[in-house]
Design a protein around this nucleic acid. Structure first.
Lengths: 159, 159
DNA sequence: TAAAAAGCAATCGATACAGTTGCAGTTTAC
DNA sequence: GTAAACTGCAACTGTATCGATTGCTTTTTA
């Protein structure tokens, strides 16, 4: 048990964060023209287990965002150029069908207000989710790599 | 144990949904000019436990969205007119400081891309969250009550 | 003064997610 | 042809968080 991260964040849903990290690593690998990254490679970079990484990769592969090649010297690479992949797509893969807001169990319609509460809440959720996807859709994976490089340069201590 | 909701939803975070329902009940109560609703009243409408409702009410009270009066014939009422309360405020109360996306535990900065990953992800999260709040901020509680009434009328079977 | 309400702490239970292990299948390097 | 290195997958464990309940104290008013 590594206490590297003794102050580990609470266990919430970190799948999006992880998926994004994986995609960023694959993006820079694609830039560098290196071959596919094995799950062991990625796991090392993420400080995680290779099998866990492979599980993370499943939905991304299903959606065509990454391509996994089996066998010796296999691994994962981007399924498309990094400037054609938006963060919204990565988000969708990572969280699946899980809605942004969960509805409470249906109460019996006791009055005019509760009668269509579920319907209304679903519409509300859909709209908020669209707003999130629009926000994430503005950025491509290539944008993110560039942004991170700029952050790095900005904070570089040497003149 | 009521198996009314035998098909109970998975346990996700339904606090926003619950809080919104409570506020809707309080809004119609305010419209009707009736006195404060007791936690037992609300619990009955929500098919829940009075104590659970009181816990739900805590953050809403702290933020001034509802006012709770103690003692006999006490209860909860809106702290402000319904057209001055947005769904964004209710959301903030319900979920507290919990960020929309959770960051993964910090990995050591092994390359230029991971170095500021946490920073970048936090910015991403903040922007998405703002989008959600903007979406929810468009609607007031009064709007919601009106919308639900319209849904009801629209579905009315009689000509 | 007793009833009725909020407030609060402790606790139980369920679920979803994080992570691990182990092995079967596949492909390539040699 | 075979062994190494990889993915794919299933079963499993652990645990934090949230849903929900119980029981008590405090407050107010009828």
């Amino acid at each position: 048990m590594p206490d590297l991260w003794a102050e580990v964040e609470k266990v919430l849903d970190i799948r999006f964060s992880r998926a994004l990290q994986v995609m960023l690593f694959l993006a820079v690998a694609a830039e560098n023209g290196s071959g596919p990254l094995s799950s062991a490679d990625l796991a090392h970079r993420l400080n995680a287990n290779p099998s866990l990484v492979r599980k993370l990769l499943v939905p991304l592969t299903e959606e065509g965002l990454v391509v996994c090649v089996k066998g010796r010297s296999g691994g994962a690479r981007l399924g498309r150029p990094a400037d054609g992949i938006t963060l919204a797509e990565i988000y969708r893969c990572a969280v699946g069908d899980k809605p942004l807001f969960a509805p409470s169990p249906g109460v019996e319609p006791v009055c005019s207000v509760t009668a269509h509460g579920g319907e209304y809440f679903a519409a509300l959720t859909a709209e908020a989710e669209e707003a999130v996807l629009a926000s994430l859709g503005d950025r491509t994976l290539a944008d993110s790599v560039g942004e991170l490089r700029r952050l790095c340069a900005g904070h570089a201590p040497e003149g």
